[in-house]
Structure formats: structure tokens, C-alpha cells
Design a protein around this nucleic acid. Structure first.
Lengths: 342, 342
DNA sequence: CTGTTAGCGCCTTCAC
DNA sequence: GTGAAGGCGCTAACAG
């Protein structure tokens, strides 16, 4: 027994022809007697179909790639993408190859070399070009969370403007006007949208956005921390009475600064987090936050991919837009200046 | 241009033979002039080596599987495993297929069907049998975090007894004696070890472990919350003056209960978390916690896998044991009862 | 250094 | 229903 068993081994054990055996493994009609003989041989040999041969022959791999930004960043979100897609795809017999973007050579090429049937991606700016090329080659691509300019393909995204609007609404309702935003840069579509949503929401309430209260930077806890520090400490200006964070890492960093600086929430400052499921219950007080249906996003993406894989013709660019909701905590209250008026 | 380009397409464009082209892609010596011609054709065609054909020929897939418990659980740890192994394996041209354990049919069989060259696993109890079978079939397996009885294979684990001991040492040094442990069940090796380490550490300090202060259950935030609730509230007994959590989810749950019940840390209760990197800075006060080198664990596992893959003979069962360290926060202090004595 | 050839294991025509 | 033959794309012998 040198290598793995093959059809030939089964043939020798059963005396049946290769085509009969193949048919057995591919759902064809096989005589009952032969079916049993084959199953017997399979069990005895510990036979496993050779996917390489099958894939080579079929021209498909029954594998899709998941491309994520560097793992340093918004971990929980990425994990739920892997988890959600894996579960659905596996139930269809499709495997998941994971690759991180940003690295050179591109993760897209790495996945292409592994002959994935499609790619589900949270596109990092550095991989947009390769993804665009993949789409041009008719490789099924489903974008998650972030859109790419001039690329026409399936996507599942959040209604980002709405997500920020509900946060702003909640704060304005409490009487806040000096509301700050800690957000990522325009390089990434989702954050561009969230910043735009912030602007829109303020204007809708008749509040003129103040550039100094909008801090844009990398999606890291470090930047979130820094932003709070400079908003609440360094400036000569009157500090904001409320802060909205546009991402989970930024939220963590912001809350870290709040704890370290001893800022009293919500008395001195109201805070609304984003995707803060993991930390909302352990902060004092529990965080009010924007909750993105991460799991559902992943599952919708998997469904889109499956549909595309099953029906080559349907290469239309569908965009599924989902909405976030606010999860109530105790980190927002009326601004301290307004309390005497009450 | 129906299918993907192949060697034949390159041949037609360059006039070179298939073996020259193959040699180019496999690091052989090719005449400079031809090298350029090939690279030119490759660029023009957007050629990608067909891994299926290569794998079929070579008998290897250059792919390894990562098997994880259900994603509901200790997310950050799992993500760093995917991230750490992916990075190292990709640099060797090896892809990563991710699968979750627990589901039926077993993730192990799913990975075997996809012809992975090896499996890196954080074994779920429900998949131990299949992993054992895989090892018996000479499939390279590297275990992470948890060992399995009677399975002789490579592994990378934490010195779990030490990890808990340093936590207990720190608390005893502050004067604590009524120390509680919130831990997983004996079903999982790592948690069995942590519980044993707790026992050892107490005895080393001349403290007799009290069964009522040791709460064992599922590795969920819910159980961590429940455990704190019952330790600090429900019991008639005197509550503990300190708590050690044995896992990240348990830590989150425990801290959630602490916040909700308004327990003052560290005045009323000292808390030491486990793998609490994500939340340590946002709790009030910042958490003191046991820090497991998760990233290093993943990388060591990838290295072991690569070594095994490169050298079939070296199928010895190496176990790499790494040590945790304590990260200082402000969640521990002398027990309130002792302060008057000081 | 380059060209020719024979399969890796499977599936899909075709005949029977 | 079953049997025989060719080829998916690549690589590892060989020759030249």
C-alpha cells in the first residue's frame, strides 16, 4: 500500500469497470449488488476520492477563497465572516481557503493559483487592482463591507449612512450638539460613507459640522485613543459633549483613553461605539453602540457566491444592503451643560 | 479564450517546449532570453499555474487544513491562529483551508477529502476520534492548545499549570486566601491542566483549595457571568476576595457580571483575567491578566507542520511548550479585610 | 540547456 | 446497465 487507493484498487477488489465505479461516486444508477460490493471495497481500502484529479478533470475546485485585510485590525468582524461563510459553504461541499490582503504578492493571485471557483473579499485598498482584474477575468467575486470604484460585481454592505445617522439621532435627542466623530480615512468606501452619513445627520438636525470635531485616521485602537486624547485634552476649544466611533478598533481605543484619562461617561462625555459587542458589557458604564449584523453579512455573501457558482449566466451585480441597529447601553445621557436647564 | 491559459498557450506564443516552460516555473535553469520570452507571455496571458494538475502529478496539494472549534467561542485566539499560520505557510506557497469542528460530518473528514497535506488543529472533544484516525493514517497533525489522550503527534501548548500559578502567586502575594477559579471542564486538556495548576499553586502556598470556590462549566461568557453571580451573591458562605478566570470568554462574562452587579474592583474583589488583551484596557480598572503568546503558538505550529512536510521521516512527536506571562493592570489589590491590619 | 514522451486519477464520451 | 479509450495540465524521466 504505497500511495492512496484509486479506482484501480477498487476495480481489482470488485472486478467492476472504472466507469461503473465512477458512476457510483457521481450519483449515477448502479446495480444494487455492485453498489454494495463497491461500498465494501471503499470501506476496506479507506478510499477517498482524489479531489485533484476530479478538479483537474472538471475544471472546478469546489473551493472558494476568502480574502481579508491584515488580521491586525477588526478581528471579530473577520472571524464572523470566516465562520459564517464556512458554515454555509461547507454544507454545499465547498471548502474555504483563507488569505490575507496587503501582502505581496497579492492574496488575489495566490487564490487564483489555488484555482478557487470564486473570491469573497473584504477588499484592502492595496488589493483593489487585483480584484478588479479578477472580475475582468470573470472570476466570481463577492465584496463584503467595502465597495470598489468602477467594479461591477456582487456585494453585501451595510447602510453605512444610516448606521451613523441612528447614532447621531440618539445623541441629538439627548440634547447634544458638539458631537465628535472618530473615523477611518476616505481610502475605504465604508468609512467614507460613515463620514458622509455623519455630516448628513448633523445637517438634518440643523447642526453645522465642525471640521475640528471630525478625526480621521487609521482603523486602529491607537488612533482611537489618540483622537479622544486630543479631542478632550489638548485642544484649546471647548471639547465635544459626545463622541461617535466608526469602527470596532477605534471604539476600543477610544474607551481605553476614556478609562485612562478618567473621563466620566456619560456625565462628562457620551460615547457611542461601533461593532462593540465584545466589550460593551465590560465597560463602565456598558456601551451604547451601533450593531452591525456581521453574521448575516457573511451568510448573505456565501449565498450570493453559491448562486453565482450554480448559475454562470447570472453574473449580474447584485448589491445587498443591510441595516445596523442601536444596542442600548448606559454610555449616553444629556450633556452636562444642559442639565441645569432641565 | 475559453478556459484558463495553459503551458500550451505559452508554447504557442514562445515556440519553446513544454519542459522548458515547466522548468521555468519550477526554479530550473533557463536561458536568459527564454526566461524573458516566457515572462512576457505569462504577463500577456495572465497565466496562472494550475495547482490541480500540479498537485495531481506531485501527489501533494500544498495545502494544509486548520481545524477549529465552533467559532462561537474564544474568537481572538482562533483568529490569531489563522493569521499566524496563514502568514508563514503562504510564504512557503502553502494554502490554508479552514474548517470548524463539532459539525457532522467531521471537519477532519472534510479536510481529508480536500486532500490537505496536513492538519493543524485546536481539537474539539467531538473530533478527537477522527483526529486520532488521521494520525493513524500518517497524516501530519499538529495539535494546538489541547492535547488528546493516546495520540502521539506534534503539538504546541501552553504551560497551563504555570499560567495559573503565576496568577495565584500574584494574588497570594497581595494577601489573598479565599481565591476562586472560573474554569472549563475536564473534557478539555488545557482546562484540566489549569484547574490542576490552581490546586497545586494554592497548596504550594499552604492554602487548602475549597471546592465551593472552583466553578467549572462551558467556555462561554454566560457561564463566566453566572459563576461570578453565584460566587458573589447567592452563596451563604463568605464570598471570595479574588477570582481567577481560566479563559477569555469566561473573563468577559465575569467582568460583565462585575459591572452589572456594581462590584468594586479591586476593593471588594480582585480579578485576574486570561487572554484578555482585547478588553483589558477598557474595563475600569484595567485588567490584570494572564497573557498567552497566541501569535507565537500559531507560528510554532506552522513551523512544525512545515518541518514535517519537508521531512517525511521526522514523524517524531515533538511538543513545544510555551509560557504565559502576567500583564499588569489595576484589578488586583490587597483584600479589604487585611487593610486594617496593615 | 532544450525537446519528447508517458502518465498522475478521474470523468465522459462512445459502443455494447 | 456495463466496458474501453482519451484527455484535463503538469512534471519527471529520458534523450539530444
Amino acid at each position: 500500500m504505497s500511495g492512496s487507493p484509486t479506482y484501480v484498487d477498487i476495480q481489482e477488489l470488485t472486478g467492476l469497470s472504472l466507469s461503473t465505479i465512477s458512476k457510483y461516486f457521481n450519483g449515477g444508477n448502479v446495480r444494487e449488488r455492485n453498489r454494495i460490493t463497491i461500498e465494501d471495497a471503499v470501506a476496506r481500502l479507506g478510499y477517498q476520492v482524489n479531489q485533484h484529479a476530479r478538479s483537474l478533470r472538471a475544471g472546478r475546485s469546489s473551493t472558494v477563497g476568502v480574502l481579508l485585510p491584515d488580521f491586525g485590525q477588526s478581528s471579530a468582524f473577520h472571524l464572523s465572516i470566516i465562520g459564517g461563510t464556512e458554515e454555509i459553504l461547507r454544507s454545499r461541499g465547498i471548502g474555504l481557503i483563507v488569505s490575507t490582503a496587503g501582502a505581496r504578492p497579492s492574496g488575489v493571485d495566490f487564490l487564483r493559483a489555488r484555482m478557487v471557483d470564486g473570491i469573497i473579499a473584504v477588499p484592502d485598498p492595496r488589493d483593489e487592482a487585483e480584484l478588479k482584474a479578477a472580475v475582468a477575468r470573470d472570476i466570481p467575486v463577492v465584496l463584503i463591507d467595502r465597495l470598489i470604484d468602477d467594479v461591477d460585481t456582487d456585494a453585501v454592505v451595510l447602510d453605512n449612512r444610516h448606521a451613523v445617522r441612528i447614532a447621531v439621532d440618539a445623541l441629538v435627542e439627548q440634547g447634544h450638539e458638539r458631537i465628535a466623530l472618530i473615523c477611518g480615512t476616505d481610502e475605504i468606501w465604508a468609512l467614507r460613507e460613515r463620514a458622509a452619513g455623519f455630516d448628513e445627520a448633523l445637517r438634518a438636525h440643523g447642526i453645522t459640522p465642525r471640521p475640528r470635531l471630525i478625526r480621521r485616521g487609521p482603523l486602529t485602537a491607537e488612533f482611537g485613543d489618540l483622537a479622544v486624547q486630543s479631542l478632550m485634552g489638548g485642544d484649546e476649544e471647548i471639547p465635544p459633549t459626545a463622541i461617535v466611533c466608526a469602527n470596532d478598533a477605534l471604539t476600543r481605543g477610544a474607551m481605553g483613553a476614556v478609562v485612562r484619562l478618567g473621563i466620566h461617561v456619560p456625565d462628562t462625555l457620551s460615547v457611542i461605539g461601533f461593532d462593540a459587542e465584545e466589550i460593551a458589557d465590560v465597560t463602565t458604564p456598558p456601551l451604547h453602540y451601533v450593531h452591525q449584523p456581521t453574521r448575516q453579512i457573511a451568510e448573505e455573501a456565501a449565498q450570493l457566491m453559491i448562486r453565482t457558482l450554480n448559475d454562470e449566466s447570472a453574473r449580474s451585480a447584485r448589491t445587498v444592503v443591510l441595516r445596523a441597529r442601536l444596542v442600548a447601553g448606559r454610555s449616553i445621557a444629556a450633556p452636562s451643560g444642559t442639565e441645569p436647564h432641565a
